[in-house]
Design a protein around this nucleic acid. Structure first.
Length: 551
RNA sequence: GGCCCGUUGGAGAAGAGGCUUAACUCAUAUCCCUUUCAAGGAUACAUUCAUGGGUUCGAAUCCCGUACGGGUCACCA
């Protein structure tokens, strides 16, 4: 008779380490009371998803706020789906969002004492756990092929019974160890399943940091914990890793709620204290009147790279995500008169339970606030690096004359209520293109939108007078007064009240007069403060544009 | 289909038996300010909290059913 212990030894003769050895190798972290150890643990199967960024941001802030640790673990046990290079990209994006880690996996090597932080490199560690579970009779080799499993599932479907590998359907659960050894010796492929002692008809409760106490049926399915490729499944890796990496709080998507009982049973089979769990709502999207998960295939905004490419400021995206996480965050921003994350106390119990609909309008709002809150140097820096990466046309304009561009960016920003017309860096160029002579020339060619109520000669005369005689400084009032004076000479009313009282006595009001100037200067009827535009463009360019507007 | 989670305006939500004629924010609309635009200021926008019943003097708030939405049932995470 082969004992469980002997079976374990037979299965994993190369494994010499024990659980106790691992406990010594990865001792509990020395952290102050209340400090949380959190982690971000993505799979390198594609680009960073907006929902993952959300989850990650919360893990990051929980650790930061509590004075704990936040680390990064690469969950690459699914070798078939792993995409080369994805991990590096993921990490780069995390860092550009200011959510970079100090401990964990890096492309050029791990940092930290609890590694390796890449699951595919932890096979030895997992085997220690698997061997232990086999040795105490809580795990066993299973010889079912995918066809066998399919047959079982079909039979279950026909008899309308819950599908899964459990109870009488767990075919190899009660094999004798002797038979197991024999079949393995014969070369039959096998996996290891966890032997669940739970009862499907019983309920268990566990506490969720967001949802409170959840009551769920126990899990009685014998899940696969060790795959035929020698790597563990998520369930097992989660338990081993978060135990030995000493994670105190696991934040993950709500899709994990149903498998939490399995994880808890695994923890208890080892006799370990499970971490706290926070199951986060998933970000949704409205599609033909139905909510659905943000999908990377259908929704561009599902990939974090979308925001980067569009030029949304990363702070704006984070602000928006935080407002979804804790809606009192907005009130906090308003109270503090600043839109920043630092200093806000995130809390799980302020979190709503169902998934928020992704709202681009609100993202734009927060992005405008984020941009308005930057000082000009960092704003300029952000725009410049955005241009470099994503917008060669913008980059060319910037390089033409960085100082000029910086002044343009700064229009009407140095004031209590700064201008907020950019939600993303991609919005900038179309709005400021007129500052550049080539773009202006293009507009001119297409025809400047002068008010047809005025004839050409009149406009020309007026503009010439303005060009030659207006004050080009030293302050806005002086300039404006001079403009008014000239306008008055040409029959415009300088006081709107007078114009309204007797419109036929005038050519128009100052709105009409300045519209002519604006069109000549910018090629468009709308623009920021004309005085600032003139100051930035400089006298020569302004003079030229006013004079040649009608040529 | 079983199980789990959820359901307050176009969106994010506050609300935890009487203080709610349902806060706040975004969006939208109108007005004000104004040399245009942006910004800013003001006002409007749920007679009602998915729905049906119940408990109660009193319910968005408690209980039950129904509907709807989402999630999950892999050698994927």
């Amino acid at each position: 008779m082969v004992s469980d212990k002997e079976l374990a030894e037979f299965l994993f003769p190369e494994v010499k380490e024990t659980i106790e050895d691992l406990e010594r190798r990865f001792p509990p972290r020395k952290l102050p009371e209340g400090a949380e150890v959190t982690r971000f643990a993505p799979s390198p199967t594609g680009f960073l998803h907006t929902g993952s960024l959300f989850t990650d941001m919360i893990a990051y802030y929980v650790a930061k706020q509590s004075g704990g640790v936040y680390f990064f673990r690469l969950e690459d046990t699914d070798t078939k789906r792993t995409i080369p290079g994805a991990a590096g990209e993921l990490i780069d994006q995390l860092f550009t969002f200011g959510l970079g880690h100090k401990e964990g996996y890096f492309v050029d090597g791990d940092k930290g004492d609890y590694g390796p932080y890449q699951q595919s490199k932890r096979a030895d560690i997992y085997k220690v756990g698997i061997k232990y579970l086999v040795s105490i009779g809580r795990a066993y080799p299973d010889f079912c092929s995918s066809e066998d499993l399919e047959k079982i599932r079909k039979a279950q479907e026909e008899s309308k019974v819950i599908p899964g590998y459990y109870g009488i359907y767990a075919r190899d659960r009660n094999l004798s160890n002797d038979e197991r050894v024999e079949r393995i010796k014969k070369g039959e492929p096998w996996v290891i399943r966890f032997k669940s002692l739970s009862d499907h008809d019983r309920k268990m409760t566990f506490h969720d940091e967001i949802r409170g106490d959840l009551e769920i049926q126990e899990n009685d399915i014998d899940v696969v914990i060790y795959k035929s490729d020698g790597l563990p499944t998520y369930h097992f890796a989660h338990v081993m890793d978060d135990h030995f990496m000493r994670t105190t709080l696991v934040s993950r998507g709500e899709e994990w709620i149903p498998s939490t009982p399995t994880h808890l049973e695994l923890f208890s089979a080892f006799g370990w204290q499970p971490p706290k769990y926070a199951h986060l709502p998933v970000i949704m999207k409205l599609d033909h009147g139905n909510k659905r998960k943000l999908s990377k295939r259908k929704d561009p905004e599902a990939a974090v790279s979308y925001f980067l490419r569009q030029g949304y400021p990363v702070e704006g995206v984070k602000l928006y995500l935080m407002s979804i996480a804790n809606s009192n965050f907005e009130e906090w921003c308003i109270e503090n008169k600043k839109y920043i994350l630092d200093g806000f106390k995130f809390s799980f119990d302020k979190m709503s339970l169902d998934g928020a609909l992704f709202d681009l309008d609100k993202l734009a709002y927060f992005s405008k606030e984020a941009i308005a809150g930057m000082d000009i140097e960092s704003f300029y820096g952000q725009v410049a690096s955005y241009a470099k990466l994503y917008d060669p046309e913008l980059e060319a304009k910037i390089e033409l004359d960085p100082a000029y561009f910086k002044k343009i960016l700064n229009i009407e920003r140095d004031r209590p209520n700064p201008r907020k017309d950019y939600a993303k860096y991609g919005d900038i160029l179309p709005l400021v293109a007129f500052f550049y002579d080539d773009e202006y020339a293009r507009k001119k060619e297409a025809g400047l939108p002068f008010d047809p109520a005025f004839d050409r000669d009149f406009i020309k005369e007026f503009l010439n007078d303005i060009a030659d005689n207006m004050a080009y400084g030293p302050d806005e009032a002086t300039w404006w007064n001079s403009v008014k004076e000239i306008a008055s000479r040409h029959g415009f009313a300088t006081v709107n009240r007078e114009y309204k009282a007797n419109p036929s006595a005038f050519k128009g009001n100052m709105a009409a007069a300045s519209s002519l100037m604006r069109v000549a200067l910018t090629g468009s009827k709308d623009s920021p403060s004309m005085y600032e535009i003139i100051s930035i463009m400089g006298k020569d360019r302004v003079h030229l544009r006013l004079q040649k507007a009608l040529d």
